[in-house]
């Protein structure tokens, strides 16, 4: 028996916050790699504190559906899951290279393979690219296009900026897009000035967020000048200062995210090779054909 628990943030106010989590969980359920798949939330139910007892398997892979390493992955999740003997050192990470560690959960006695967050996995770069393909409806998007990967700055969490930069650099090295830049909401280079950072007329903007919400639906579109009032919506693309901005909304809603969850579990020893193939074929067809 192997089980997967996806640990996500959730929300007290926004019903849509948990939707991507449910959708990715369902994709993985359908792939049949795990005997059980369960979603768990910081702000919703089942809470981190109680999810393990709802799972039958003795071995559980816990994958945080978070963008970066930091407060949630290093303190909250291990504490609430009651992972005995947890120490962030076990991930031996430079801020973006967490892998996994195996620890007992003290309340249930289950063996937990605690994985790094989805956001810093290499496969996340593919999801960002696929998000660009989805929003432009072009499986070969790249030439003549700039790509902006957007996130919080260092103010809230140093590693959050690292994750953005990591993927921007990784995608840049592929040479697919004319330009790739990391932009931030609360520090330079700031998303407000997006058009100043790119020469390309077309710019795809992909926010590295798990779910759509205040930041991705209200803040970022208004900051970039896509709209004066998020409630009135905006076009994709929208023309701003002579550039066409293709704004994708949260990367976490991209179906291929389910693959990153599986990759995390696979890196921690889960036997999910077939499921990965299946999920990639189902959710990443454009990506597969353009590779």
């Amino acid at each position: 028996m192997q089980a997967l628990v996806i640990a996500a943030h959730g929300s007290h106010l926004n019903a849509g916050s948990s939707t991507p989590t449910f959708e990715h969980a369902d994709t993985i359920r359908a792939a049949g790699a795990f005997d059980e798949v369960r979603e768990s939330f910081w702000k919703e139910e089942p809470p981190f504190r109680e999810v393990l007892r709802t799972v039958d398997a003795d071995e559980v892979h816990v994958v945080p559906l978070f963008i970066s390493e930091g407060y949630f992955t290093e303190q909250v999740i291990p504490r609430e899951f009651r992972l005995e003997g947890w120490d962030p050192e076990q991930w031996d990470s430079d801020g973006t290279s967490a892998s996994s560690t195996t620890l007992p959960a003290s309340d249930t006695g289950q063996t937990v393979h605690y994985c790094g967050p989805v956001g810093t996995h290499d496969a996340m770069s593919d999801v960002i690219v696929q998000r660009a393909e989805s929003v432009t409806d072009d499986p070969d998007v790249g030439e003549g296009f700039g790509l902006a990967v957007v996130g919080h700055g260092t103010e809230r969490n140093e590693n959050s900026a690292k994750a953005i930069e990591y993927h921007a650099q990784e995608i840049g090295e592929r040479g697919r897009f004319d330009e790739v830049k990391a932009l931030f909401m609360d520090e330079d280079p700031e998303i407000d000035d997006v058009t100043e950072y790119f020469e390309s007329e077309d710019i795809v903007v992909v926010p590295l967020f798990i779910a759509d919400g205040y930041h991705t639906e209200e803040d970022i579109p208004e900051d970039m000048g896509l709209t004066d009032d998020y409630r009135t919506g905006y076009d994709v693309p929208t023309e701003v200062d002579g550039h066409r901005i293709w704004y994708s909304g949260a990367v976490g809603t991209e179906p291929l995210m389910a693959d990153v969850v599986l990759e995390r579990a696979a890196d921690a020893g889960a036997d999910v090779t077939d499921a990965i193939e299946q999920v990639k074929a189902e959710t990443g067809s454009a990506h597969a054909s353009s590779d």
Binding site: E45, P46, P47, E50, V51, R53, T54
Partner: peptide, 13 residues
């Protein structure tokens, strides 16, 4: 368990 997560587990405990 989807309607009322973990309630039957805690009830049993």
């Amino acid at each position: 368990d989807f309607f009322y997560p973990a309630t039957s587990s805690n009830w049993h405990k």
